[in-house]
Each structure stands twice: as structure tokens, then as C-alpha cells.
Design a protein around this nucleic acid. Structure first.
Ligand SMILES: [Mn+2]
Ligand SMILES: [Mn+2]
Ligand SMILES: [Zn+2]
Ligand SMILES: [Zn+2]
Lengths: 138, 138
DNA sequence: CTCCTTATTGCAGCAGACTGCAATAAGAGG
DNA sequence: CCTCTTATTGCAGTCTGCTGCAATAAGGAG
């Protein structure tokens, strides 16, 4: 929890709810929805609601501790940001979600930084398209 | 409108509403919201509603005629897909939106295709991060 | 041109994500 | 340990985007 201690400098507070959301994300692993997190936290916080969970997720995202991604399932998914980073390829035909290494995205970030001075935060991308199997048929 | 004639093969219909949405996107140019499109079409279709507009936009997106992008303003923006393609860098600090050429993204698509056989549809990306001015201060 | 099939629209309703406000509690200071 | 400030929560309400269903109209056949 050392990453979290830094935030207290700016007057931000490390509440039980925030700790619990992060812990739930670690426990569940992978892609989790706000609704799922809310349900998981109901044991400890019977009165918690999605509004609070979404606010906490935005806050965690702002601190690069959590990523928020549209992987094409109609609901945003959240995942703990941890090294090594990974991204996803989503097939528009068979709806498969394929993991892809960060090394494919790193050159992009480097180029944007070198040429334009833009510090890209590419934490957890989803690239849509057609997977090898489906591209063949099309 | 020759791109549109192709769709009729599959039994899909080229309605006045669909034509009007495409035309409105061409007329307005740049990033447009579904609400703005709906308002623009009210002159010709007094009873049109956002449900229909969103459905048409999904259909156009499916045919790669329109892109749908989250550029961080809380509402999705739609834009006519036309060559040469472009993308955007969005600053998380000053909220500026910078245009960026497709050549930065083309190597990514090529690598995904060559290594993984994945045919990426990178039509109109938004990359979040910190612009040159804001990255300096941080 | 008219008829027929069925894809699409209009409408109403719903789910996901966000926000204002009063009540609560983190945590700094004494 | 107690007090005080104010950031955060819980709650209710709002907005964006999507969906089911009956009515409408595109466009192929005759
Ligand atoms: Mn992931
Ligand atoms: Mn654009
Ligand atoms: Zn596929
Ligand atoms: Zn900036």
C-alpha cells in the first residue's frame, strides 16, 4: 500500500472504501465492472452504492492505479494497473478478447514523446478489429 | 454516395434518415455529438429521436463510414471517416485536443497484423496523457 | 405502378455512468 | 484523546446511450 501513502500529501484521504475497492480489484484480478465491485463491497459496507464506486474508480484512475477500458461488452471494465502492462485486441466478429504485450504500444508512446513532447498514458488499450481466424474469412 | 450503394447487397436499406445523418456529418465536419445530429435532422424529420440517431451511427460505424470516439468531454463524438485519417492526443491537465497524423499509428497496425494476424481497425484514436506544456510542469 | 416482405423508425422505457447536496468521517493539530 | 476542518460518502436525481415492440416504409417481385 506504499503507492497510496503518497496521495495523503495533497490532502487526499485514504478511506476504508478506497482501500477496499483496490483490494477487491487485486483479489478478483482481471477485468471487473463497477457493479461487481459494488456487490463485493456490500459485505463490508452495506450502504455502499455505484455512485461512490464510480467516484473511487475515477480517483484511482487519476492516480494511475486502475485502468478504465471499453472492451466492447457494453459496460466499462476496470483493472489494477501493474507491471508488466498488457493490452487487448477485440474481434468485432467473434468477440474474442486477445491479450497483447505492451511492447507493441511502447514505440507509439516513444514517438509521441520524442516528436510532439506528448507524454502518453497508455495503460490498458483495447484495439478493435478482426482476429486472425475472422480476418481470413472476410 | 457510392460507398453506400454497396450495402444494399446484403438486404440493408438506404433510408432517408441514414443519408441525412451522413450528410449532416459531412456538412458539420469535425467532431459531432448524437444530440447535435438529432437537432440538425429535426428540420427534415420532426419526429426523429436520439435512439434512431444512435442506431444509425452504430450502423455507419459498422460500415467504417463513421468513427465513434471518447475524447474525454463526457459525451461520445462522431466523425466521418475519410482519408487521410487522423487521431487525437488529449491532455488530462489542460484538456487540449491535439491532432496527430496516422503515421504514428500505422506501425502498430502493421505489427499486429504481421505478428498476430490481427487486422486492427484504427480509424480515429484518442490517446490520453500530458501535452508538452503540461508535462514540463509535472 | 402495385403488392409484399421485412428492415428500420419512432416511441417509451431501461441500464450505465455521473453529479449536487447534506451528513459523515479522515486525519491534522493541539 | 479531543476538536476542527473539509474531503468523501450515501442518496437521490440526471444524462447518455441502448433496446423491445408495434407501426412504417424501402425496395424487390410481378
Ligand atoms: Mn486487461
Ligand atoms: Mn477527429
Ligand atoms: Zn474473430
Ligand atoms: Zn496540457
Amino acid at each position: 500500500m506504499s503507492e497510496l501513502d503518497q496521495v495523503r500529501q495533497a490532502g487526499e484521504r485514504l478511506t476504508r472504501q478506497r482501500r477496499a475497492v483496490l483490494q477487491a480489484l487485486d483479489t478478483q484480478g482481471g477485468h471487473v465492472t463497477a457493479e461487481q465491485l459494488c456487490d463485493a463491497l456490500r459485505g463490508e459496507f452495506p450502504h455502499i452504492n455505484t455512485g461512490t464506486v464510480y467516484r473511487i474508480l475515477q480517483w484511482l484512475k487519476g492516480h494511475s492505479l486502475v485502468s478504465e477500458t471499453d472492451v466492447g461488452i457494453g459496460v466499462k471494465v476496470y483493472e489494477r494497473v501493474c507491471n508488466p502492462r498488457h493490452h487487448h485486441l477485440v474481434c468485432l466478429n467473434c468477440h474474442r478478447t486477445i491479450d497483447v504485450d505492451d511492447r507493441y504500444f511502447h514505440p507509439l508512446a516513444t514517438a509521441l514523446k520524442q516528436d510532439l513532447g506528448f507524454q502518453a498514458r497508455i495503460e490498458h488499450f483495447a484495439v478493435f478489429g478482426y482476429c486472425a481466424d475472422c480476418a481470413r474469412g472476410k
